[in-house]
């Protein structure tokens, strides 16, 4: 019996505690990301944003959450019930499980697996299922159109994200996320790989269905796209999952290009702050750019979106993989 506790029970309990330490801050971050989005876009458009509930409207996300929980959950009669309910759960789960491999500070990671970056890539490429299942199960035109758009869009931009990841791997020599961050000591990858950084960020916008690539939910033409038929908690799960995905994509950008938890200069005032603070600051900065882009740019037209993905990003990123590999071989810059 004692063996049962030491070998199975305590490690399991310890892992659950660690998971809670990741998920709870993440959900609070998601709540305040929605608040920040409304505030930032409000100020950029000379409005106040939410300012009624609590001081500066700081309790607004919780009021929204409470409202969604109290609403009636409607399942359309013609819908496919199981798939209809499965879709938001899938989106939400996928938004969370990516965080299992994200190193938020040196050694602060739930599971430091060898193929961390591939795992993240897999999780982000699965995000399309929540949307396509929701669109199909709703049995309604607008959601279905949104889902089809989203499927094509996410598959297209995954390809260039894949090539960007390959370049970073060439420069690192490892698929482990902690190794990728540690390889950036001294020089963050966004300097030598700047074009790939830009491509990754834009593809990240497309992959998370954010403006200017938010065609799956284009409210002007598709009402609200794939989540038209959803209400109450099912809608809330979509919402939470999408924003968690946004934070995950920002964390990926930070780890691949902005040096993860490393301070910008390894000298006195900078390295006083612990790694987690630097990591959060960088993620917040990338998220701010996400919101800034949404407030600034008009939505892409669908054919332009496809052209950008297949005719601009794909050839360019492929070329840059070859250039990077060539440079590494020619100048003998092999990562150790």
């Amino acid at each position: 019996m004692a063996e049962f506790w030491t070998i199975y029970a305590w490690p399991t309990l310890w892992i659950i505690i660690k998971i809670l330490f990741i998920v709870v801050p993440l959900l609070i971050a998601v709540a305040y990301l929605t608040y920040a989005e409304r505030k930032v876009i409000g100020f950029m458009q000379l409005r106040m944003g939410p300012n009624v509930v609590g001081p500066f409207g700081l309790l607004q996300p919780f009021a929204d959450g409470l409202k969604l929980m109290a609403k009636e959950a409607i399942i359309p009669t013609r819908s496919n019930r199981v798939v209809f309910l499965l879709a938001p759960m899938l989106t939400f789960t996928l938004g969370l499980i990516g965080w299992a491999v994200i190193p938020v500070a040196d050694g602060w990671v739930l599971s430091d697996i060898n193929v961390g970056i591939l795992y993240l890539f897999a999780v982000s490429s699965l995000g399309v299922y929540g949307i396509i299942m929701a669109g199909w199960a709703s049995n309604s035109i607008y959601p279905f159109l949104g889902a089809l758009r989203s499927a094509a869009q996410m598959v297209s931009y995954e390809v260039s994200i894949g090539f960007v990841i390959v370049t970073v791997l060439l420069a690192t020599g490892s698929l482990n996320l902690s190794d990728i961050v540690l390889a950036q000591q001294g020089l963050w990858f966004f300097i030598p790989l700047f074009p790939m950084f830009v491509i990754f960020f834009i593809s990240g916008l497309a992959e998370t269905n954010r403006a200017p690539f938010d065609l799956p939910e284009a409210e002007a033409e598709l009402v609200s796209g794939y989540n038209v038929e959803y209400s109450a908690m099912a809608f809330a799960l979509f919402f939470l999952g999408e924003y968690a995905n946004m934070i995950l994509m920002s964390a990926m950008t930070v780890i691949l290009f902005l040096g993860g938890w490393l301070p910008p200069f390894d000298i006195a005032p900078f390295n006083w702050l612990p790694g987690i603070i630097w990591f959060s600051l960088k993620v917040s900065f990338v998220l701010f750019v996400f919101l800034w882009v949404r407030a600034t740019l008009p939505r892409y037209r669908y054919d332009q979106l496809m052209r950008l993905g297949w005719k601009v990003f794909l050839p360019f990123s492929l070329l840059w993989v070859v250039v990077t590999a060539g440079a590494i071989v020619a100048f003998d810059w092999f990562p150790t």
Binding site: F121, A122, S125, L126, V128, Y129, I132, W136, F144, L148, A151, A152, M154, V155, E158
Partner: peptide, 12 residues
């Protein structure tokens, strides 16, 4: 991530 998405796309 890729093949089954296209599959689903076509079947739908």
């Amino acid at each position: 991530g890729a093949v089954a998405v296209l599959f689903l796309f076509v079947v739908m």
